[in-house]
Design a protein around this nucleic acid. Sequence first.
DNA 1: TGGGAACCTTGACTCAGATCAACCAGCGAG
DNA 2: CTCGCTGGTTGATCTGAGTCAAGGTTCCCA
Lengths: 248, 248
Amino acid sequence: MLNDTMKPISQACSDCPIRHRAVCARCDTDELDRLEEMKYYRSFEAGQTVIWSGDRMDFVGSVVSGIATLTQTMEDGRTQMVGLLLPSDFVGRPGREGAAYDVVATTDMVMCCFRKKPFEQMMERTPHIAQRLLEMTLDELDAAREWMLVLGRKTAREKIASLLSIIARRDATLQLRGTQGPLVFDLPLTREAMADYLGLTLETVSRQMSALRRDGVIELQGKRHVTVPDFGRLMEEAGDDSDGGMLV
Amino acid sequence: MLNDTMKPISQACSDCPIRHRAVCARCDTDELDRLEEMKYYRSFEAGQTVIWSGDRMDFVGSVVSGIATLTQTMEDGRTQMVGLLLPSDFVGRPGREGAAYDVVATTDMVMCCFRKKPFEQMMERTPHIAQRLLEMTLDELDAAREWMLVLGRKTAREKIASLLSIIARRDATLQLRGTQGPLVFDLPLTREAMADYLGLTLETVSRQMSALRRDGVIELQGKRHVTVPDFGRLMEEAGDDSDGGMLV
DNA sequence: TGGGAACCTTGACTCAGATCAACCAGCGAG
DNA sequence: CTCGCTGGTTGATCTGAGTCAAGGTTCCCA
């Protein structure tokens, strides 16, 4: 990594926007105090690589704001996104030396980092952290398995609809609105990143986006701003039951 | 579930074949004693469904012997395998009511089960269990992501070669042999299950198996018994570096 | 103010893998 | 012994998505 943009950001954990959703969610005040001592913030610009696969990783951390992707690459250059990191998501694996994936910021991003050693030690003595991390990891595993169904068995159109419905649903919950009535959101991904996510080419993504627009499933203002007039319809196109059973 | 085959099997944890690899791996003797009190064994026949997706699950447990699959199904019947459960793997999710996937025994199988409530309570008081489960879940997440690359970006031939190399490698480690020299193993899956795993049709699986045999990458004795004369060659066919970096 | 450079769209053609279909081998039950 | 069934193979054909190629939009910076 040539030059990280390392603006000196600082913030009390108590004011942290991801306080109640990140690894530290269950920590009580003095656990938080100890974390506060070992944490530091790092900022990344859109497009910047946070970690290269194989690099030695001496920290772990949480995404505070912005979005990053986890991608795997084959020798011949084919790539597959294997994770999408949103605010509060955890980066890095306690107990592992090297990074297993490339982590790339797709928007400007801020991370709350902990040096790995002290964090691991703290984890051993603080069940709250290990418990929360287990919960988050189980959720990620569920998401990964959902995604495997998408990659393995869905058509291009269904894949696109699935991705849009994930983003739309997340957006709706963030804004504390239900999935009734039209949903409006901005795509945080380029067509290429969408292709990478879905195991498609960017041309196919583009074509299927156009097709969904033509068929009235979505409306597009510009390339990235999306309106979903009928969420149930989108779910049908995704091949999910229209009542979409999000368990957690 | 109509009628489980419930042979009265019993075994001391200290003699358990998966003692050092399952969730209980780190437990000391009195933790083990407490687990021993709440555990019970269940047997399943090849082909039997252990749990249906959506069912209420009142237990969690470990696979002791045999193999099971985790599969997701769409309304129209398309299915994708999302997990392969081998001895020592954990089934069920603490803190969740319903099962998220179908679990099917593909060979005769024995499970060591714990009623969910007592197990969850014990987990809260026993960091050793939560820690081990975290570790196992992180490994599964890695495996799931590896698999996403296979599903999203590999050709049919590469997919088959990838699956074969996973099974071959696991088999070699179980028998404490390296990946030098010819490897011999039995496929624990039907062609249909392989197709399900890889997001292919069984016809394509069959064709690619024949192609790999024709090209000398594998040898087949009968339908299921496989010999890999040159593991490096198989890795190349899988699209991985031939030195295959298993980190853990 | 005009030339790049990202990013996106669309068209024509190709091809890997799906689909449809016939057939084979082994095996347990009557 | 042979019927029927499960699991597997192979062939012919079709098709969805990839590939290659040509533009179109923005937006930035010289």
